[in-house]
């Protein structure tokens, strides 16, 4: 199936600004699905609120565009009730880890078979450029006019600690990695997190003097490095890319099935 067959072209043009990284994520995601040969009918995409969340409208899967921060809770209900479906949950940084932080850690704890994609642009784009829990300190945002003092979460470390069994990170510069990691995340049985650094030239780049979308993408090349690289040892400030966690742990729906068997035996 061609990539464009996965799109709902009827609903284009999309709402994203020129240069937004989210289109690259969409592209990478669809290539992953296409390469896996998945049927559109077996995928449910659940999203919350924000620029990132609008991705669900443009893709011809079963799509559930929900409320802010709660996509993983809705997805948990879909997955639990129909475990054979593949759940993909794209979220923005605020959606996933500010308002949705609680659902994020609990989905990870359960190790429910959901692919969570954190499209991290370090800003609330749709509301016009407020700092997020992934902005980190010294960032200029409309709600941080004197630069932010809030420390940032590390999505990878948080996911690991909460129990996610697949954790990867890449950027919109590394487009092939997007497809590769999302593919592996979908194939992984358990809660999988793929963090993708995605540029917001309109609100983050402009306020923080990071230049154009192309400049911001080039910057992703400069500030990131593969896991365990020599460059990282020399410069600890570099952000690591790669697959950080890939391990087996009982998956929630499978465990539930076992419990149902026990219950039916009248135990």
């Amino acid at each position: 199936m061609a990539i464009k067959d996965y799109l709902r072209e009827r609903f284009f043009p999309h709402i994203w600004c020129p240069g937004c990284g989210h289109g690259t994520v969409l592209n990478g995601l669809l290539r992953a699905v296409e390469q896996l040969g998945m049927s559109r009918n077996e995928i449910v995409m659940v999203s919350g609120i924000g620029c990132s969340a609008r991705i669900s409208g443009y893709i011809d899967f079963h799509t559930l565009h929900t409320i802010h921060g709660r996509a993983l809770a809705f997805a948990t209900g879909v997955k639990m009730s129909r475990p054979e479906l593949n759940l993909i949950v794209p979220m923005g940084d605020g959606d996933a880890l500010a308002i949705g932080g609680n659902h994020f850690i609990h989905a990870a704890r359960r190790n429910i078979d959901i692919t969570a994609i954190v499209m991290n642009n370090r800003i609330y784009g749709m509301t016009g450029g407020q700092f997020s829990p992934l902005s980190g300190p010294d960032i200029t945002a409309t709600t941080a006019p004197f630069s932010s003092i809030d420390p940032s979460f590390d999505v990878v470390e948080l996911s690991k600690a909460a129990g996610a069994t697949f954790v990867a990170r890449t950027t919109t510069y590394h487009v092939k990695q997007i497809t590769d990691y999302i593919k592996q995340a979908i194939l992984h049985e358990g809660f999988a997190v793929v963090e993708i650094l995605s540029q917001c030239p309109t609100h983050f780049g402009r306020k923080n003097k990071e230049g154009s979308a192309v400049d911001m993408m080039k910057r992703y090349k400069e500030v990131t490095t593969p896991i365990g690289s020599k460059a990282k040892q020399e410069n600890p400030d570099l952000i690591e890319r790669g697959i950080f966690v890939q391990k087996e742990r009982p998956e929630y729906c499978k465990e539930y099935e076992k419990m149902v068997e026990r219950a039916m035996k009248g135990r």
Binding site: R70, A73, F74, G77, V78, M80, S81, H106, Y256
Partner: peptide, 29 residues
């Protein structure tokens, strides 16, 4: 519910609880 092959899940809060049942309703439950 497990005795009849149904599903019960204790969620992390009431917000998640209502969200989860909405999700499950969409699959026909």
């Amino acid at each position: 519910l497990p005795q009849i092959g149904g599903k019960f899940i204790q969620m992390e809060d009431e917000i998640a609880s209502l969200c989860a049942i909405i999700g499950a309703s969409l699959t026909g439950h």
